[in-house]
Amino acid sequence: MTLRTTATLAAGLVSALLALAALRGLPLGTVAFWFAPFPLFAAGLGFGWATAAQAALVGALVTLVSGGVPGALAWAILFALPSVLMLRLALPAAPGGTLGLALPFALLALWPAALLLGAELAFAARPGGFSGVLRTAVEDALARMGAAPGSDTEEVAALMVRIKPLAFALWFGIVMTMNAAIAQRLVQGRGLAVAAPARWSLALLPGWYWKLALAAGLAALVVPGGAGFAVQSAAMVLAVPLALQGLAVAHVLSRGRPGRPVLLGGLYLALVLFLIPVGLGLAALGLAEHFLNLRGRGPRPGTGLTPPED
């Protein structure tokens, strides 16, 4: 058995088992769930995106047998399909090239936005559409926690429904970038990388992305009703990569400055405590990067390329 075949089988099996640990409620299963994409990224970065695709087929079989159709679909939609697609977009056509991060970076929002659109279509016949389904689920959860029915509970439920798409997009973006970065370090350290590593701090969204995000933001201000929920949710989701790009700008600009850990720690704390206003500020910073190239040493904004090492 070749190393590539071993990696394919192991990546699919381990990824599926990590996801099933959470689906079956095993101890530390939630933690394991966060790392389900890692084996797929490691296999793809070490042996090519086709290896990751084959590993995904192995994982699909494992999750189907052990978790049934719902478990297999959840694993495929959340981890397998976006991981393989990100690798397909990131890996260069010729061996030895540099990873391209522009399109995979955009996919961090486009994939959740596509899932949001799919949910809207799937629940279009329900009262209130997808937002109505979410609201019912949140109200039921609050009732099980002992919350008494009333205006306060309704306001909390409405707020939670509004931010759920944003929370999912943030979770998805963090999980995918974290696992891809760890996998890149692993395969690079073992000399298995099929492409030159990318510098994540200099990742740039495609030049067209800010126009899409801005158009969604403007539409969210004027579209009413149930359609307004979908557009507002899409606008928040599309703002996530811009905020991550703004966060990368903050990391680069703070290099070499006194008290850098304190500055970045304060920024992350503010982001946790005041998610929406601080996130919007970071998104604005990420948008400014497209025009001002604030990181300086990067290539022309929107290319997703990385400069040569010093």
Results as ranks from 00 to 15, higher is better:
residue 2 T to W: 03
residue 5 T to E: 03
residue 8 T to H: 07
residue 9 L to G: 04
residue 10 A to S: 14
residue 22 A to P: 00
residue 24 R to V: 11
residue 24 R to Y: 02
residue 34 W to L: 15
residue 35 F to L: 15
residue 35 F to E: 08
residue 37 P to N: 03
residue 42 A to P: 03
residue 51 T to A: 14
residue 54 Q to F: 12
residue 57 L to A: 15
residue 62 V to F: 11
residue 62 V to H: 07
residue 63 T to S: 10
residue 69 V to T: 13
residue 70 P to L: 12
residue 75 W to Q: 04
residue 75 W to S: 01
residue 80 A to T: 08
residue 95 P to A: 11
residue 98 T to P: 01
residue 103 L to R: 14
residue 106 A to T: 00
residue 110 L to I: 07
residue 111 W to D: 00
residue 111 W to V: 06
residue 121 L to A: 15
residue 123 F to H: 09
residue 129 G to Y: 01
residue 135 R to M: 12
residue 138 V to L: 12
residue 141 A to N: 11
residue 142 L to S: 12
residue 143 A to L: 14
residue 144 R to H: 13
residue 144 R to Y: 05
residue 145 M to N: 08
residue 147 A to S: 14
residue 150 G to A: 13
residue 152 D to F: 15
residue 153 T to V: 12
residue 155 E to P: 04
residue 157 A to L: 15
residue 160 M to T: 14
residue 171 W to T: 15
residue 178 M to V: 14
residue 179 N to A: 01
residue 180 A to V: 07
residue 180 A to W: 09
residue 181 A to W: 10
residue 184 Q to D: 09
residue 186 L to E: 04
residue 190 R to G: 04
residue 192 L to W: 11
residue 192 L to D: 08
residue 193 A to G: 10
residue 195 A to S: 07
residue 202 L to C: 09
residue 211 K to V: 07
residue 216 A to F: 01
residue 218 L to T: 07
residue 220 A to H: 02
residue 223 V to C: 02
residue 225 G to C: 00
residue 225 G to K: 07
residue 237 V to N: 04
residue 239 A to H: 10
residue 241 P to A: 11
residue 250 A to V: 06
residue 253 L to R: 13
residue 253 L to Y: 00
residue 254 S to E: 08
residue 254 S to M: 03
residue 255 R to I: 02
residue 256 G to S: 01
residue 257 R to K: 07
residue 259 G to L: 05
residue 259 G to S: 05
residue 268 Y to W: 14
residue 269 L to D: 09
residue 274 F to M: 10
residue 275 L to M: 15
residue 276 I to C: 09
residue 298 G to L: 00
